[in-house]
Design a protein around this nucleic acid. Structure first.
Lengths: 218, 218, 218, 218
DNA sequence: AATGAATGAGTTTTCATTCAT
DNA sequence: AATGAATGAAAACTCATTCAT
């Protein structure tokens, strides 16, 4: 009864709770899907009781929304800041794509991609929000880099409406795999670094960049 | 009660049932996910009663397995036949990738991709089966085409462990989008044909194919 | 498992179920109140399982509405028919009031009075419906009898806006008592018949009827 | 946080707490019923926290008992005092009945009638207590007045076991209505004063009082 | 073979009660 | 004394599964 172990201050708990809960929820939603996740599991994973969840979230659905909302938005600002940090289109594009992989794709947050994809049709409003706040904004960022590359003659002219999605797909795929088949079937690829190198090499060539020519031609 | 309208032969009906049921199940599993789909809905969509489902499938899980199993396997054989049909690596690669899109990705069957991805961790054995029977086999097919291209000097040397997944990702992405955000947020791209053209153009260039040179050099 | 006892035909059950369920619900709602009644109890009392309730009623609230709706309406038509059956205002008034007691107040249906009174503020729409469909209609019926009595010079002129409620109150009270204190404290009165006689004697005299004078004056 | 406004002496506050709490509880119990009332609401209405309730009452049930106990008892002594204050049976009866209406029926305390009626079967001991301490004592008071009237030849002989309840019923009804349908359906009657006049006029006549004759005969 | 009424285990949600601060 | 975060038992509600017809 007198809990000599649990000396963590109450106040501190209170403020940290919502994020502890959404973190637990994210992990389980990604693993099992929204419907198949029991709130009791979420609570247990966060080390609280079932009822405590309801002190912070009105319903399972509200928890889902909080998970998504809290998930990804802040990182995009950083991405957009890259536009000013880097001048060279190739460097910029690399920074954007690899930056996403390092900050999102390869972390727990990468699970949001799978989660949102799986549940989009069950939560159309959330999906709409996510599409506008994250996806379209991310695609616009990539397009900006591509446009800069084209205007400088570094990239070939290309269909700007398609290129963002095409460029991003192999990274998304990696994040999706990690959170689906990866758990039971191991990797399909030789290694993540090799994958990323091969990927970036392919798209740069695809965009018409003649990187190594100077060296090769020597 | 006395069904004077439905003159379809009984024999045929009975044999077609399982596929009518898996088709209905696929559509709903893709839309809502496995856990959120009620068997009553599946039955209703197939025009039978809830009890009838159990004449054909032992359980909801058995239905899921049937949906996956029946879903994709036959098409792969056709894909592998392409290796002999086409000699030119570029033509072959195009036939494989676009063929997949036409036969699978753009059809109802494309939903299996989203479904399997969403449920892989809930059904590890099914996922393992699907990985071996479909994914690895598909990737091997693409690799074969790439290997042929490299050995003929049409493609640049490239990391064979990664390239399959990378090449396929933008197509998968399209299929996933159709069955997730597409339902509520519309397309992110300018149009499917443009997307496919841009995509193939990008990867061909990425693979080092100098397609138009002869013409341009004229 | 093989239920040799329960040979009652299925079809018949299906049709009778809703009323078996509302009857069980009425009894328990009256006894414990709406909130304190568990649906499992209702189901048990009706001899079915918890889930079966939901085949017939969407929610606990829907069950409540059905209980009220089904409860009392039909009887009022009979009451209104009395207006034509009896000419003498005293006989008519007696028929209305005692008829209500016999058909409603003294039966299971009398519980609806307590139930509706207890829950009116929790279900304003139901209360409004009940007020219009039952209470106001019933009061109008009594007023009609009183008006007839006054116009024939049998009753004294009296406030028609108040008299209905006043006349009915002692009967309501009896019905309320039966379903509240009556269960634990026994009757407050000497006996129901004596109560009814005393009651009708009081109100007749109150209405100015000089019944026994002819005899006394002899 | 630092409550500079609330200069009310602490001592006073502390002593008044229990009654502030029972008052809040009464209002909510009457409105929603015991089971449907959440203690958090009670606390909020009394301006304290949920936990504070438990400093004064051991449980929700204890709070209920306190609400009832505190509710009505003191007023009865005043009523019984009327027996000596008034000699004329008509004046006495009027003082008792209208006095109850003014002190109880028309006030917040009138809600106890509805509350106790609704919950009697859930709290048989409380109901028994209330019946003996309030109802039977009140009925005895009325009977005393009636007995005096009969013995003086002002009232007709009448069934003493029934008359108390009958006389009180229209007043109870008014109190019940105020706390049930009254909240959503408005009044059924023309006005409270008219109702009370009509009511007392009816029962006086019903009791055989020939009030106005002397005046009229002049 | 087909039905759909019935079941009951399982899940979300609520709320009286406790207790560390 | 007072608070309000935390608990967990209990209740509403869902739905895969069964089985009499």
């Amino acid at each position: 009864m007198n809990d000599l172990v649990h000396t963590e201050p109450r106040r501190r708990r209170k403020e940290a709770r919502p994020q502890e809960l959404t973190a637990a929820a994210l992990a389980l939603f990604v693993e099992k899907g929204f419907a198949a996740t029991r709130l009791e599991e979420v609570a247990a994973r966060a080390g609280v009781s079932k009822g405590t969840l309801y002190l912070y979230f009105d319903s399972k659905e509200a928890l889902f929304k909080a998970v998504i909302q809290e998930g990804v938005v802040p990182v995009l600002a950083e991405g957009e800041a890259l536009l000013d940090e880097h001048d060279d289109p190739v460097v910029l594009l690399r920074a954007i794509l690899f930056g996403w992989w390092e900050r999102i794709g390869s972390t727990e947050l990468g699970g949001v991609v799978k989660l949102m994809l799986s549940e989009a049709r069950n939560f159309p409003e959330v999906a709409t929000f996510y599409n506008e706040a994250v996806i379209q904004r991310g695609l616009a960022l990539i397009r900006s880099a591509v446009v800069r590359g084209i205007s400088r003659g570094v990239f070939r002219p290309i269909d700007l409406d398609s290129i963002g999605t095409i460029l991003v797909a192999p990274l998304m795929h990696l994040a999706l795999w990690r959170n689906s088949f990866g758990a039971c079937c191991g990797p399909t690829i030789g290694g993540i670094d090799r994958y990323l190198d091969c990927y970036f090499d392919l798209i740069l060539n695809g965009l018409g960049v003649v990187r190594d020519l100077p060296e090769d031609r020597t």
